Computed example of a mutant assay.
Amino acid sequence: MSRGETGARPPRRRRLVLAVAAVVTVAGGGAAVTVLANPDSRDTVPAGSPGLSSTTASVTRVDLSDSTRRDGTLGHLGERRINAGAAAGGGAGGTLTWLAPTGSVVKRNERVYEIDGRAVRLMYGAEPMYRTLKTGAKGKDVRQWEENLAALGYTGFDVDEEYTAKTAAAVERWQKSHDLRRTGTVGPDQIAFAGSAVRVKETGAGSGGDRIAVGDRITPGSPVLTVTGSERVVGFRIPAAEAGSARAGTRAHVTLPDGTRLPGKVSAVGRTATVGDDPQDKTPKIDITVSFDDPDKVTGVDQSPVTVELTGETRKDVLSVPVNALLALPDGGFGVQVVENGRARDVEVELGMFGQGRVEVSGEGLREGMKVGVPSA
């Protein structure tokens, strides 16, 4: 049969289903995609026209984007524990007299908890508070403490890794402002370090561990709070083989449970692929974290399901047809059935980007506004 008028199409369209599925899997990664254009219009072909599809769709120019959609979960940055610090000179601990409430955000120099009425305040830094700092002490933890003092306005010393008499004088001023005994030294019974402001997730060890409450006896090293970072983020997992679709810096849009759509980007990509808990899915996957451009606009409770759209390549102003308009041609390749003046002809096409039910096409004689046959719904 020539590529002029065509005969019946149903058998060839059925054969095409698997072929198109294979093409979409290769070209689109098997993921949902987005079309940045208006939907195509469809016309009904008069009944009884031999060889013609019962419906048609327009060849249109659109902007196609191969963005990938994933299901994610709303949460906060990494989880960690804050343990009770030892008092200077040791000691057996004391009674918990105050605790930052669940869901609250604790910032620099604010109270995290109190033991026997003595507050432990949060400071920023990666080094743990593991010893009492005093004149003559040296190390990264000294610099970290001095950076916090300077950030709070207690100056008059060099911010370095040496705890000097000038540092001690600044510490005394800090202690005076909090009605503490002015010793010039500071230890784990007065401050705790975290990378930034923290959000209190729960009391105690978390993850099913023991909970604590005001009035409980606390010993040094006991878990007091389970906290996360204060910033809202989204987490999801993807197969390790598809890691290229979610590199650090990849732009994204997150649709929240209330329908709000907010921009962001991939801020962290896991380095280790692991198999999840689903016994039916043994595909190695990696963890992806998306941070919001404006976290203050994020609403919704922790662990809420969200949709993440990872932005891929965008092709501007390309000719496109619905995916189900494609035909598998007898000699190989793909074509479309162009319908004009009540007659049909096959036009061979080259395929480009796929996007939400449409595909970029190019071919001799193909132009915007043409009608192409599509199968009936």
Rank of each mutant, 00 (worst) to 15 (best):
T219M: 10
T219R: 14
T219G: 11
P220W: 12
P220E: 12
G221N: 11
G221D: 10
S222Y: 02
P223A: 13
P223N: 03
L225Y: 02
T226F: 00
T226V: 06
V227K: 00
V227G: 03
T228V: 06
T228H: 09
T228L: 08
G229A: 08
G229L: 02
S230Y: 02
E231H: 05
E231S: 13
E231G: 08
R232E: 00
R232W: 06
V234F: 01
V234P: 10
V234T: 04
V234S: 05
V234R: 00
G235F: 09
G235W: 04
G235I: 05
F236E: 02
R237S: 13
R237W: 09
R237Y: 10
R237G: 00
R237V: 11
I238A: 01
P239G: 08
P239N: 05
A240F: 06
A241P: 03
A241Y: 05
A243S: 14
A243R: 11
G244D: 11
S245H: 05
S245N: 09
A246N: 10
A246H: 03
A246Q: 07
A246G: 05
R247C: 00
A248I: 11
A248S: 04
A248N: 14
G249H: 09
G249L: 08
G249E: 09
T250N: 03
T250G: 00
T250A: 12
R251N: 12
R251S: 15
R251L: 15
R251T: 15
A252D: 02
H253M: 07
V254C: 09
V254S: 12
T255C: 01
T255Y: 02
L256N: 08
P257K: 07
D258N: 14
D258E: 11
D258P: 09
D258M: 05
G259M: 07
T260I: 08
T260Y: 01
R261V: 15
R261T: 15
R261C: 07
L262C: 05
L262N: 12
K265W: 10
V266D: 06
V266W: 06
S267F: 04
S267A: 14
S267G: 14
S267V: 11
S267Y: 07
S267M: 07
A268F: 09
A268E: 15
V269H: 02
V269A: 07
V269N: 02
G270N: 03
R271S: 09
R271A: 06
R271D: 13
T272H: 06
T272E: 10
T272V: 12
T272G: 04
T272C: 01
A273T: 08
A273N: 08
A273I: 06
T274C: 04
T274Y: 04
T274F: 12
G276R: 04
G276W: 01
D278L: 08
D278A: 08
D278F: 07
Q280Y: 11
Q280F: 13
Q280K: 13
D281V: 12
D281I: 10
D281E: 10
K282W: 04
T283V: 15
T283A: 06
P284F: 01
P284R: 05
P284I: 02
P284M: 06
K285G: 06
K285P: 00
K285T: 15
K285H: 10
K285E: 14
I286K: 01
I288S: 04
T289C: 03
T289S: 10
